[in-house]
Design a protein around this nucleic acid. Structure first.
Lengths: 215, 215
DNA sequence: TAGATTGTTAATCGATTAACAATC
DNA sequence: TAGATTGTTAATCGATTAACAATC
């Protein structure tokens, strides 16, 4: 996808959604052009880094002018693949699964949740934000027949590995894992991204107790 | 907190919760000692890195033996500050806020959610996992009188900044931010950690569309 | 003791920053 | 054109890896 097909480091990938968010905000504020200096200052980066980052993907600026906010925003959407629609299923209709189904931000970014599954008979058949909860036993057929891009795992750790293997077998492309463990599918091409909420609050705790004073 | 009071890089801090999780798993499996080589292999790191990481905090191993799993686990809990209890309030009783209140993992790690707030009159007074939703107007008094460590923001972006300022004013120590923006409180000592769920799914999307084949 | 494995120093690698020629 | 700002190369900085003496 990147013009010069060089290696893109994780550090760069981590910044891409941030650029996307800041550019969105600039658009909302009616700002149409921005320099690497100005953008970097808002984001707490250096101007060099901003230019280096963008140039991994081909350079979207113009000397003497800077960057056009709208087209840079579009380019980054393309790089991230969020210019395309994604079909998403959520496995685990507990509180977190239901919260994701109700989260408007995902729809906005093209992530369409088209089904919600659970193994609990008490949940199957209930309706969450317009989706009727289906039984886990229906996952295999559903994935095979509905061009599912991403499976979201909001199930307990103990169930994550077999479920990931099932999804892999059905030909899913990506897994968004909320179980508190590092999922791995050796030999598989399925992309796994984990949202480790408890890692995040532990880092907060670390900083609370090892405060480096910024005042 | 660290023995040799040297600077701890973000890269190290990010690995600490992972070490904690892997050690937890070793305990669950009845493994009582482990070498840096074995631990690094399980985690996809190098043995050198594992030893360097631990030695930032003083070195918990023994030559010829390795590390005692249980005591290393305890040491990392101390470093992370999760050997202590934290009083947590959740602001925003929508789906995500409710999901967090119901999430058993936080209690397990010592994060006690002691109150839940919302501004919506339809939610105020309802009960979520034993907690009665309180009005936003009660936040100030509550924080001042209840030794609140952490405020969790599960509110829309537009409300995050004023709420963060209010919490800062009331003397809160940390904010766990779920709003899709980078919160900043210039001049404040409040520690802010953001859990950017949409950044995470965007990174997944990036990898789906720029796949580096691992098969 | 001999073997294993740490703690730690030195070497390497890669990411960030600085500098500046190219150019709009 | 002159001024501004990029794209890109070179320099620096910091994190990771390698190596090995210390020591259990």
């Amino acid at each position: 996808m990147n013009n010069r097909n060089d290696y893109i480091s994780d550090a760069v990938i981590r910044r891409l959604p941030r650029y996307y968010r800041y550019l969105e905000e600039l658009i909302d504020n009616g700002i149409t052009r921005i320099s690497s200096g100005e953008l970097s200052e808002r984001m707490g980066l250096t101007a060099s880094q901003v230019r280096q980052d963008f140039n991994h993907f081909g350079g979207f600026g113009q000397q003497g002018y800077g960057y056009n906010v709208e087209s840079l925003h579009e380019e980054i959407a393309k790089i991230l693949g969020i210019d395309k629609l994604h079909n998403v299923i959520v496995i685990g209709a507990g509180h977190l699964g239901q919260a994701l189904v109700n989260y408007p931000n995902f729809i906005k970014r093209g992530f369409h949740i088209i089904a919600l599954f659970d193994k609990d008979p008490a949940l199957i058949g209930t309706v969450v934000n317009g989706l009727t909860v289906m039984a886990d036993s229906e996952i295999e057929d559903f994935v095979k027949n509905n061009n599912v891009d991403i499976g979201v795992l909001t199930i307990p750790k103990s169930e994550a590995v077999p479920m990931a293997k099932l999804l892999d077998k059905c030909g899913i492309k990506g897994i968004w894992n909320f179980a508190s463990m590092d999922l791995e599918l050796p030999g598989s091409n399925v992309v796994i991204e984990s949202a480790h909420l408890s890692d995040s609050i532990m880092r907060l705790s670390y900083r609370l107790h090892n405060q480096t004073d910024h005042s």
